[in-house]
Design a binder for these strands. Structure first.
Lengths: 134, 134
DNA sequence: TGAAACTTAAACACTTTTCGTTAACATTCG
DNA sequence: CGAATGTTAACGAAAAGTGTTTAAGTTTCA
């Protein structure tokens, strides 16, 4: 049984960073260049992002596809649309309009510009009314 | 920006399994052997395990090491011990005795036999009284 | 402005993972 | 028992990940 995604090097750097050390200080301690510390730290946070994304996928396995938020749609139209779709299948959405918009923004910032959707977003929902955007 | 840990092949197999298909049925659909489906499914769950472990590590970054639950200790002694240690550092544990024992069992089943600890368990706690076992 | 902190990109050697095959072994159930 | 299902081990090829250096680029802030 292997470890998590992070290498010992990456964990080491994250711990030192947590303590508030600069990349140069860490480089001195672990005997390498600050550029390398930067790269290690970066790949560490990338690994963490991937770990999150992996578990997010599991979530879609439990969830049902609710609808597609089409490109060009206005952010303000989305909440009513999702509520309506959820009602069709008898599930109550867990989020109010504001939280819902924030949740979409957090999940897929790259598909939104200003108030408009640039690229289709798939919306999933589970029995508890939790939403996932993929 | 790369995807999560799971390959398309692995996601595919997990989706079919979620639908209740056997490994042989999936093998026929995706044109490979059932042995390969088994291997793919296994590496998928392994990747999921690693994703979880990675995020668990992040948790320990926020948390402080509270104490070590030594090998040979009785499960029933653990809760009072942890409460006592937490009190020393002025943190209130979030879990009652029953939940605490269940939490340990879930986190490290392989280190417990019947009522006894087989192998040392490190206990971490954060400001909110959340516990982590590693 | 100038120094320190941080980021990025390309290239390299090296290790690990993944997908696939084959073939044997284990489990479950009618 | 026998058939279907699932698991495991060993191996190869292709792909991806890791740590490192070097060298250039930002950002931050006194």
């Amino acid at each position: 049984m292997k470890d998590g995604l992070l290498t010992d090097r990456q964990k080491e750097v994250l711990r030192f960073r947590k303590q508030g050390l600069t990349q140069q200080q860490i480089a001195d301690i672990i005997h390498t260049s600050k550029a390398n510390v930067c790269t290690i730290e970066k790949s560490a946070t990338e690994n963490i992002r991937r770990a999150r994304e992996t578990l997010d996928f599991l979530y879609t396995l439990d969830a049902t596809h609710l609808c597609t938020v089409g490109s060009g749609m206005d952010l303000l139209e989305i909440a009513p649309f999702i509520y309506q779709e959820a009602e069709k299948i008898g599930v109550k959405v867990k989020y109010d309009t504001i939280s819902l918009i924030n949740k979409i923004r957090d999940a897929t910032p790259e598909r939104i510009r200003a108030r408009y959707i640039k690229e289709d977003i798939e919306v999933y929902i589970n029995d508890e009314g939790d939403l996932y955007f993929g």
